[in-house]
């Protein structure tokens, strides 16, 4: 056990926690933007999976990382557009739409992979390009902090920037205000002339774009190839992270960090003699515990608020 503790309190652990936070964080921010517009985006998992594949394909065939990134991004936008069309225009249930998209993604990615590479599980026959890692000058030289914060993948830094941008966008910008008002009360927003459907379209597209980077990080950052079902439920974990983040970008970041730590824990627990199945379970158990904790706290707050109101009414 002390071995585990030593590995948890090591620089490597924090570094890998940050790294493993990245995909969940991107998707959770995507979920946040959609959720603030009143749309539950269950399809994040599918978007990530598709973008992970198309990013690899695009970069391998064009030889350009930028084109690969563009492919992944456009894929994410495209799937979000399909979801938006069916749920907003054709009035399909948003949950079913997302479930359908995820189904299409699990099989569809394998279908595309097999048609192109002749392999059903990995894309190793293609040489995908990878987002570069970046050494930050100055910070790199600070003893412990440098090892933790420097030398990450470009997308990891981008995800941290995205937290600030999404926060600013939602809380301080005009379109962000529209998104929030639509999510808060669509009828009220409509009555003051906000085009609810258009706002939701925008929110879903933005959500797809953010999630697509999460997917690309998996196949072009963490690994250097696409592998079947590589998202492993991260899109769903992101939904939980967003719920735990209580509707704010900063909260979502910290919640995602918790899941990143859970995953890093799962990695560092490997090889300490625990059955591997329990080790693999850690991130999912953490997610359920997180959901339960959040729900319990919220329920408690509601109860307190109600009690407070009653007391106020009682004493004039």
């Amino acid at each position: 056990m002390p071995e585990v503790l030593r590995s948890i309190f090591s620089v490597d652990f924090v570094y890998s926690a940050l790294r493993l936070t990245t995909p969940v964080l991107f998707a959770a921010l995507g979920s946040l933007v959609a959720d603030r517009a009143g749309v539950t985006n269950i399809g994040l998992e599918g978007i990530m999976l598709f973008s992970a594949l198309t990013g690899v394909l695009g970069s391998a065939y064009s030889g350009s990382l930028f084109v690969g990134m563009l492919c992944g991004l456009v894929t994410g936008l495209f799937i979000a557009l399909i979801m938006a069309y069916f749920s907003l225009q054709m009035k399909a249930d948003i949950i079913l739409t997302g479930v359908a998209m995820n189904l299409v993604a699990t099989g569809g990615t394998v279908f595309i992979l097999y048609s192109i590479c002749g392999d059903k599980s990995v894309s190793t026959s293609l040489s995908s390009l990878v987002f570069p890692t970046i050494e930050i000058p100055l910070i790199r030289d600070i003893p412990v902090l440098g090892d933790i914060l420097s030398g990450h993948n470009l997308l990891t830094y981008l995800s941290l920037v995205a937290v600030v941008v999404v926060w600013f966008f939602l809380e301080k910008s005009k379109p962000g205000l529209r998104i929030r008002s639509v999510g808060e009360n669509a009828h009220a927003a409509e009555s003051v002339g906000i085009h609810v459907r258009r706002v939701r379209y925008g929110a879903l597209l933005l959500s797809g774009a953010l999630a697509s980077f999460g997917g690309m990080f998996l196949s072009m950052g963490m690994l250097t190839y696409f592998s079947k079902n590589m998202t492993a439920g991260r899109g769903y974990i992101a939904l939980a992270a967003q719920a735990l983040g209580n509707g704010s970008a900063i909260g979502t970041f910290f919640a995602s960090l918790v899941f990143g730590c859970a995953e890093a824990l799962s990695v560092s627990l490997q090889g300490v003699g625990l059955p591997p199945q329990f080790v693999q379970m850690v991130p999912y158990v953490a997610t359920i515990l997180g959901l339960v904790l959040y729900a319990a706290l919220r329920k408690n707050t509601k109860k307190r608020v109600r009690k407070h109101k009653r007391r106020k009414r009682g004493s004039p």
Partner: peptide, 13 residues
């Protein structure tokens, strides 16, 4: 799975 997903999307619409 693509067939299945399309069916869900259309029937649910």
């Amino acid at each position: 799975s693509i067939v299945q997903g399309t069916i869900i999307l259309l029937v649910a619409s």
